[in-house]
Amino acid sequence: MNGRKEHRLTRIRRRTAALAAGAVNYLVLTAAALLYIAPILFMVVASFKPDERVLPEAGTWQAFFPDEVTLDNYAAVFRRVPFGRYMFNSLLITGSIVGGGLVVNSLAGYALARLQWRGRGAVFRVVLALMILPLQAIAVPLFYQTTVLGWRDTYVVQIVPFVANAFAIYLFYTFFLGMPKELEEAARIDGAGVWRTLVEIVLPNAKPAFAAAAITTFLMYWGLYLWPLMVTTHEDVRPLPLGIATFRTLPPIQWGDIMAFAVMMVAPVLVVFVIFQRWFVRGVATTGMKG
């Protein structure tokens, strides 16, 4: 009798403990989420507030819950700097890097994973080595090379050096390695040559890898600052990160305008992520890559 009662008590105690643990868990998670989202929320809200209220209200509730909303800041951005031009340049440059990269890097990854050729091992080691080399380490010689080629102040100089990407090659390489070889063998026996097999069988099944490669290279190069600063002088070919750098110091310094610029600059990142997220998560799962 007593034993049973005790047993029930233990059970209740255990359940309470589990509930408490869950509550603490969620509390910590919510706090962390708020911590991450707060600056972004502040940025978005500030971009819609009259400029003179942004800084004075930064420490109040109005920083997150505005009582007045305006689009003036956005209009100001377009009026004060060639924002459309920056955006176009960024989209063109990053889009070309991503698009060209998907073609080049997937082919390279496939060749490393599946085809037999002389020097494959050496090339693979070079790719691995390149993965750990930061841009800063090669920026100066690269600058010299592109100058010799006469590429200063062009789109080309901002695109070509980054199309081939060791990280993306490695991502495709691991993905193709993990793909069942029988699929390609079946296609070969069914009458398809190497290219046909690649186009009809391999690529359609590599969507997760493409999404993962697209999203990571997009993020890598959308915010690139150092390189365009080194190789461009004209506004005509400069991308958004240089634009916002100029804008931030352009008198009069108006924080509402700067926030509007920033919101429009990160918007494409969100769009890309939302579009590819489904594939991206799957890609991470299948390539064993962690973001």
Binding site: P180, E182, L183, E185, A186, A187, I189, D190, G191, I201
Partner: peptide, 15 residues
């Protein structure tokens, strides 16, 4: 692809 043989794989290898 030039042998005119067909193969059935253990894991089927359906596309």
């Amino acid at each position: 692809q030039k042998r005119n043989v067909a193969m059935v794989f253990q894991q089927y290898a359906l596309y």
